[in-house]
């Protein structure tokens, strides 16, 4: 018999401590999110509420890149949904822990699940960790630093007032380029990525000023990968 799954303060604390190196590494991303929010015209409070309530950096940066006055409600919500679809695939991996939780412990833990503390929790779980509080503890501490560093970035942007086209705003693209290097899985990604690049570029020229090209490119590339695998298999 294996030990049952528990959910304790001790497990949450262990998650928070194990997460410290990752917490330090998200501070620059929080600063980028804050500077970008300021550049998009959000107030300090709005920027911090967004980081607190959405708590998903990449989707926030995509949404901020299409922000206007008033913001396009459907487009920003859809951007958040599509960019965060990967989170829907991450929760089920932690099922051995999550299936044992109920109520706020389950749904609260899921709220604080982000890429970094998810990866850490999967490692903890697969190496025999039985305390599901680990996920909440690591996520909560990262969330706190995320919100605070967003605020700091907003203050930085407000004091520098970088003009549009300033290299500081290139940070958003740099974040995504570095993420792409990590997402590359080898030869099978060549065709889907080429299709995504071509279809999104064409769509962006046909529909300037909207963000639909991101959705169109992702859809075309994903569909290409799925159909190709089906024919090959």
């Amino acid at each position: 018999m294996t030990e049952p799954i528990s959910f304790t303060r001790k497990g949450a604390w262990r998650g928070a401590v194990r997460c410290i190196p990752l917490i330090i590494s998200i501070i620059p991303f929080g600063l980028v999110a804050g500077v970008t929010s300021q550049g998009a015209g959000l107030s300090l409070l709005e920027a911090m509420i967004m980081s607190a309530g959405v708590y998903a950096g990449a989707s926030q940066l995509v949404a901020l890149s299409i922000w206007s006055h008033p913001p396009p409600l459907l487009a920003t919500a859809l951007a958040a949904f599509v960019v965060n679809l990967r989170l829907a695939l991450m929760g089920p991996v932690l099922a051995p822990w999550l299936d044992r939780l109920r109520g706020w412990r389950l749904w609260g833990s899921l709220f604080f699940m982000a890429d970094q503390n998810w990866a850490l929790s999967v490692t903890e779980m697969t190496t025999g960790g039985r305390d599901a509080g680990f996920l909440l503890g690591s996520g909560l501490s990262m969330w706190l630093v995320w919100v605070l560093s967003t605020g700091a970035g907003h203050l930085l942007g407000a004091s520098m007032r970088p003009p549009p086209g300033h290299p500081l705003f290139f940070a958003v693209l740099a974040v995504f380029v570095s993420m792409l290097a990590g997402m590359w899985r080898g030869g099978k990604d060549v065709l889907p990525w080429l299709v995504a690049a071509a279809s999104s570029s064409i769509a962006s020229f046909l529909m300037p000023g909207t963000f639909w090209y991101i959705i169109i490119g992702a859809f075309a590339g994903t569909l290409t990968g799925g159909l190709r695998d089906r024919t090959v298999a």
Partner: peptide, 16 residues
């Protein structure tokens, strides 16, 4: 198939 979403999504953001 869903595993293709993240890569193609960010390619579609960056390249245009």
């Amino acid at each position: 198939m869903l595993a293709y979403v993240p890569g193609t999504l960010f390619v579609s953001f960056v390249v245009p």
